[in-house]
Structure formats: C-alpha cells, structure tokens
Nucleic acid binder design. Structure first.
Lengths: 171, 171
DNA sequence: TCCAGTTATTTTATGCCTAAATTATTTCCT
DNA sequence: AGGAAATAATTTAGGCATAAAATAACTGGA
C-alpha cells in the first residue's frame, strides 16, 4: 500500500509535487537575490561615498586592467553581460574623465580599441584594494573554510543555468 | 620550523595573507553575481515576452498577495529592499492598470493602504505559476537533493552580511 | 563593380534605481 | 495652544539597464 506513495512512476508526478519543486527552486532564487542585493547595495554605497564612483564603471576598469594592450570595445558587453547600448555612455564618461582611451582601429573603422590610461590604472588599483577589503569585511562572519565549497556549488548552479539557456537557444 | 607557517599569530598576518583572503571573498562575490545576473536576465526576458510585465511590478504584487487586507505603502520599500521614491511610479502604474488600489488611511492622512484587486490577484497567480516553472526549468540540472543545503548556506551568508552591516551602523 | 547581407557601434524610448530635497501631516514638548 | 521635530510619501536629478531602430563600415558573390 505504501508503494505508490514511496515511488510513483515519473509520469504520475502530480500538481502537488510540481508545486513543491517550484517552491524549493523559488526559495533558492530568493536567497540568491537577497544575498546579492545586500552586498551589491553596500558596495554601491561605499563606491559612491569613498570614490564617487559606480560599480559599472569599476567593472569596465576591472576588465581593462587584465588587458594591458587594450580590448576591442565589442568585447566589453560580452564579458560584462550587459547590452552594448548600455556601455556607450559609460565608456564615454570614462574617456572624458581620463581613465581610458578609445581609438578607432586602422584595419576596420567600425571597431574601436579601449585601453586604460596610467592614471586610470592607478585609480583602479586603489579602488580594487578597497573592494576586496569591503567584501572581506562583509563576509567576515562566514567561515573561511566554507568559502571554497560554496564557490564550487555556485559554479554548479551557474553551469546548470547556462546549459538550460543554451538548450533553449537551440530550440 | 613548520610552526610559523602552520599557525602564525593573528597579529602577524601579512599583506600576502590579506590579499589571498580578499581574492577568496571576491571569487565568492563574482559567483553570486554571475548566478543572479544569469537568472535575473532570463526571468526579466520571459516576464516581458510572456506577460509584458517587469520583475519589480511582479515583486510588488507578490508582497500584496500575502496580505489579503492590504499593506501600508511604507511597508513595501522595507520588504522589497528598494528606496521609497523608486516605488511611487511603480505603484502608480499598477493602480492605473487596475491591479492594485491605493486608499488614504482615515486615521493618518499621510499613510496610504495598497491592496490587490481581484483582477490583480488573478493575473498574479498566473504569472507566479510561470515564475516557479521557469526557475525549475533553469535549475533543472542542479540536483534537487543539494537545494536545501545551498539555501541553508546562503542563509548563513545573508546572516553574516546583515550582522556586518548592523555592526557598521552602530559605529 | 555593385549591391545585399553582415557586423560594430550609437541612438531612442522606456523603465528601474538611488540620494537628496520637498510637501503634507502628525506628534510631542513646553 | 503653538511651534519644533518626526514621519509618510512624492519629486527631482543623475545614472544604469534593456530592446529595437538607425548609422556606418565592411564582405562576398553575381
């Protein structure tokens, strides 16, 4: 009599089961969102207060810091996972402020190369150090020996979502 | 000879150690952000395509769905962790579209009560079901038996960050 | 050659988000 | 009772985000 309850065939998964699965996944999503929002809000606030800077601007500099010879402009939207149109005014302002340069390519006049200036690199390093310290401070209470495990688990989540998206794309 | 390496006194933690800790915390932050951005972007896209709706609007309805007798307007910014000024136009539009009502309190004319309409509740339920199904689809590849553990770990992260923020607030 | 299609970037329209200033109302103190 | 401080909500200014349309430059085939 307990058989049906203990191991129902997959095809008989009913509405209640689906609801329970939805709730479990939704709970995970809400936790992810809460953690990210909490940290992001505080980082935003500190960037603003300490450096009068924004996170998207910092993110652009972080990408360029790893590319001493500069980066094709079109690479930025891909790496930062934002739309291209969004980046235009951000890059504009970083150029105006002297943190980066934007030079058209000679081979293909559609393409532009963005590159951090010496001044930009100096400013970025200073902010990056604070950024690391802020995160360490915010996460201080979370045991360090659990960090690696959580990062690995989040990599699994990321991989799962990526695959789900790719699967959908091909459809 | 191994002693100094294995257990340095806390006071002798040097710059290299601090750098390593920063990197570990930064890695966690980048993973959190990547997971959240991936999922959020896809949810946003689907809300838009399927219902011509946005996530902030959905979030407001989700709060009101749990409060049959309505909610004081000022509760929304707290629960949704957004600024009050941000909510005004969102609530405006939800009222215009007939999903919610906003009525001034008789006891305190500064206060407004927001409440979901019958039509709003119907629409919300439909969207909430999709929302759950989308999440289940996106996370399908992540083993279900690891969900609970990850939620617990994220709760720990959230608690740690909250405490760090509170601690700073009191200073 | 020329022109149809592709690619890189910007522009436009719309909405979300915050911080800070403002308005309207209530409360509390003397 | 009268005015200062507190509270609820909105407005303003500035920036970030997307999608979709427009612009400009390149490529490849008839």
């Amino acid at each position: 009599m307990a058989l049906a309850k203990e191991s129902p065939p997959a095809s008989s998964k009913n509405a209640a089961d689906a609801e329970a699965a939805y709730r479990a996944h939704t709970r995970l999503w809400l936790r992810l969102l809460a953690c990210t929002s909490l940290i992001e809000g505080e980082l935003r606030r500190r960037f603003r207060e300490e450096y009068d800077f924004t996170m998207p601007r910092f993110d652009v500099l972080a990408q360029l810091d790893r590319e001493p010879s500069g980066l094709v402009l079109g690479e930025l939207p891909k790496r930062l996972m934002v739309s291209a149109g969004n980046l235009t005014p951000i890059v504009d302002r970083l150029v105006e402020d002297g943190y980066i340069t934007r030079t058209p390519s000679n081979l293909d006049r559609r393409v532009q190369i963005v590159c951090m200036t010496v001044e930009g690199r100096k400013t970025f390093r200073r902010m990056a150090k604070s950024h690391g310290a802020w995160l360490a401070e915010l996460l201080a209470e979370f045991p360090e020996n659990r960090l690696e495990g959580l990062v690995g688990t989040l990599d699994d989540v990321k991989g799962a979502v990526r695959n789900a998206l790719q699967h959908r794309e091909r459809t």
